[in-house]
């Protein structure tokens, strides 16, 4: 992660705003995406992910703020700025009545200056050689997704923008896509911008993440930091009279980082869930009765609750680290 300081800023968004039908949908969004990283755009349904992406790729106009791609203003020099972008917004839309190759040729003519060898190369890259001369209406969703990616990468963009790319794919397809995206960033040095409403997905493929809700960026930071703040929480339930002793025992264990009450008679502690047994044994040895143990995986809802201040000290802490 040390290289990031020198990595080129490929996408820079400052103060982006959008109002639709008199209703503000996007408020003052600001974030940067660097070359060679996978940047997650995480938010629940209706958060404004697609609306933001539409503005990033020129499908919708912004009502305020600046979008620079490779240092070029999208508003002032649209062709030069957008030439560096490949994208799939929502579904990969293709001409179903044409073959895969005809679709790529169509796209190549739209971009200008793409040699025919590049089409062959990209077809091999996404592994569609056998089906490329079939009509797209015969393709499966996975094949369409791959053709969509071929189209998005055909003109060698610096920035790849994908809106919920795993939608509708099976687990194998998702895994494959994830590896593919990582490879693009790591080996080809692309900046990849991926939106999702699934925390787990972002965790598995992104370097950094912007968390958005109701059209605002709540936090931007390395995924690692985010996960460390939230991962591996264990909730312990003790009888009321044993709560104090339980807390002392847990706090004293070397692998427990922090202990705090949830206000409903339970104690939370941040620790590796694989060591629940050890912690339990320690409690038993100290004669503390345990009524219940629950390993909590963090859901997106928890995260939002925490980040927007509803989740007590924990959320407040991450919000601080997130906005540094």
């Amino acid at each position: 992660m040390g290289g990031r300081a020198v990595a080129e800023t490929v996408l820079s968004v400052k103060g982006l705003r959008k109002t639709i039908g008199g209703r503000p949908i996007i408020h003052d969004m600001t974030f940067d995406v660097y070359a060679g990283e996978v940047f997650g755009f995480l938010g629940p349904n209706g958060a404004g992910k697609t609306t933001t992406i539409r503005m990033l790729v020129g499908l919708a106009s912004a009502d305020g703020g600046e979008i620079d791609i490779g240092g070029i203003s999208l508003r002032r020099s649209f062709p030069q700025a957008i030439a560096q972008v490949g994208c799939i917004v929502e579904n990969p839309e293709l001409y179903k009545f044409m073959t895969g190759r005809e679709n790529l040729e169509h796209f190549a003519r739209m971009s200008g200056g793409i040699p025919p060898e590049r089409i062959e190369e990209i077809v091999r890259f996404v592994d569609l050689e056998r089906a490329i001369d079939d009509k797209v209406k015969t393709y499966s969703l996975g094949m369409r997704q791959r053709l969509g990616i071929a189209q998005a990468l055909l003109h060698r963009p610096k920035l790849l923008i994908l809106d919920e790319p795993t939608n509708g794919l099976d687990p194998a397809g998702i895994r494959e896509l994830r590896q593919f995206i990582r490879r693009l960033a790591e080996e080809e040095g692309l900046a990849v911008f991926v939106s999702s409403h699934l925390l787990s997905e972002i965790e598995m493929m992104c370097d950094r993440v912007a968390i958005i809700n109701k059209g605002r960026v709540i936090s931007v930071g390395p995924v690692q930091d985010l996960m460390e703040q939230f991962a591996d929480r264990v909730a312990w339930t003790f009888p009321p009279e044993a709560e104090r002793r339980g807390r002392d025992v847990l706090s004293g264990l070397p692998f427990v980082e922090r202990v705090w009450p949830d206000g409903e008679g339970r104690l939370y502690c941040r620790m590796d869930t694989e060591r629940i047994g050890e912690a339990n044994a320690a409690l038993v040895r100290a004669g503390v009765p345990v009524l219940g143990i629950a390993a909590k995986t963090v859901t997106l809802e928890d995260l939002f609750l925490a980040l927007t201040g509803g989740g007590g000290e924990d959320g407040a802490e991450h919000a601080r680290t997130g906005t540094k």
Partner: peptide
């Protein structure tokens, strides 16, 4: 209606 307008408007063409 087919959504392919996105292919036309996200390319370096006014």
């Amino acid at each position: 209606s087919e959504g392919t307008i996105k292919l036309l408007l996200t390319r370096p063409v006014r």
